[in-house]
């Protein structure tokens, strides 16, 4: 019997890769540095997912369960890979808990890190209590508490959602579009309007990128059914008059400066490369692409291959990615790893 595949990271991609390999009879070892599986949707407490509308704890929770119940998947949580050596087909991994793994191939499903809004101090996060991130609003919903101003627990009457926080911003070295934030923001805007019908929600945007089928299901729907207002403006700064937040910027469509009071300001934060990517790059000996994500060896040829033969990558480790696409990539990477382990064409290359 062949050696197991090592899967690093227990989020949607890692869970998918493990389950996909197990379902064709391939043993895997799933290493997760946190003490539980589920990745960002579970660890960060996401609420309802796009586009299914299912609660993250149900949807991703089911993925965790089916992996946990599978004999062919060995889960090692609370540990990370410290050393990774050997040749393709005969790798040896040493974990931080002292244990070792003999693996024939590895799939990196190491995901991303949420942008830390403190890096955009002009938008008030960390200075004003009522400036929060989309992740925090997700938590307000998933906890069942609903959307409240952190400063005093009041229901906001006016909410501003700022898009592209930590995305498309040369000032802070994040030139990429994080892909999901427009859709997430329009989804949250609808949820806020649903929970608090009296609350007005404004979205400040540079472009709206609710790509593909999300256009009418999120952007249009939020405008047409939920009366969410979209204002084309990049905000200059978020301050406070002592009572409410003051949002300053320029409304580009009317060429007028704006200074508007809000109760709650939400940063639609982007997806950074995993903060551990430099470490992962050196441990696994894989190249990073120019933005700092784990690089793919080929766009059209090998599925999920990295610069190191036998080491594959899937999901948001490769760049901003949706859960759906992370799952699809993980299935492709599982296919590639399986072929590699069993001497298929990919191995011959």
């Amino acid at each position: 019997m062949s050696k197991p595949a090592l899967i690093v990271g227990g989020g949607p991609a890692g869970l998918t890769a493990a389950y996909a390999l197990a379902s064709i009879g391939q043993r895997t070892v799933l290493v997760e540095k946190e003490d539980r599986l589920g990745g960002a949707p579970i660890l960060s407490g996401y609420a309802k997912l796009v586009p299914s509308g299912e609660w993250a704890r149900d949807a991703i929770g089911a993925m965790v369960e089916r992996v946990g119940a599978n004999d062919l998947v060995e889960v090692r949580a609370g540990a990370s890979v410290e050393e990774f050596s050997g040749e393709a087909g005969a790798f040896t991994a040493r974990l931080t808990d002292g244990s070792g793994i003999e693996a024939g191939a590895a799939i990196l499903c190491t995901g991303f890190t949420h942008f830390d809004s403190v890096n955009k101090p002009e938008w008030g996060f960390g200075t004003h209590a009522d400036v929060v991130t989309t992740t925090q609003v997700e938590q307000m919903f998933s906890s069942g508490d609903g959307v409240r101003c952190p400063s005093d627990g009041r229901k906001p009457k006016r909410v501003a959602i700022l898009l592209c926080v930590g995305s498309r911003d040369r000032q802070i070295g994040r030139e990429w579009c994080s892909k999901i934030c427009c859709t997430v923001a329009s989804n949250l805007a609808m949820e806020i309007r649903e929970e608090l019908p009296e609350c007005h929600v404004y979205i400040y945007y540079m472009d709206i990128r609710t790509f593909g089928l999300n256009e009418d299901l999120y952007y249009w729907k939020s405008q047409e059914e939920f009366k969410v207002k979209y204002i084309k403006a990049r905000i200059a700064e978020v301050t406070s008059d002592g009572e409410r937040l003051i949002v300053k910027g320029e409304d580009t469509l009317v060429k007028r400066p704006i200074t508007i009071p809000f109760d709650l300001v939400v940063h639609a934060i982007g997806m950074d490369p995993n903060v551990d990517n430099l470490l992962l790059s050196s441990v696994f000996g894989v190249d990073l692409e120019p933005h700092g994500h784990i690089g793919r060896a080929s766009v059209y040829d090998a599925m999920g291959a990295t610069s190191r033969p036998g080491v594959f990558v899937a999901g948001a480790a490769t760049g901003p990615e949706t859960i759906n696409d992370s799952i699809a990539q993980a299935q492709a990477a599982a296919m590639a790893a399986y072929t590699f382990l069993h001497g298929g064409r990919a191995a011959a290359k």
């Binding site: 007005h200 249009w220 405008q223 047409e224 009366k227 409304d251 009317v254 007028r256 400066p257 704006i258 200074t259 508007i260 009071p261």
Partner: peptide
């Protein structure tokens, strides 16, 4: 500088014949 929005304006126009779909 624009310092505030009149949030009722859109609904007022929408209440008059012809204005129903302005929010789109």
């Amino acid at each position: 500088v624009v310092t505030d929005y009149n949030e009722d304006l859109e609904e007022e126009i929408a209440a008059l014949p012809g204005g129903e779909h302005i929010h789109r």
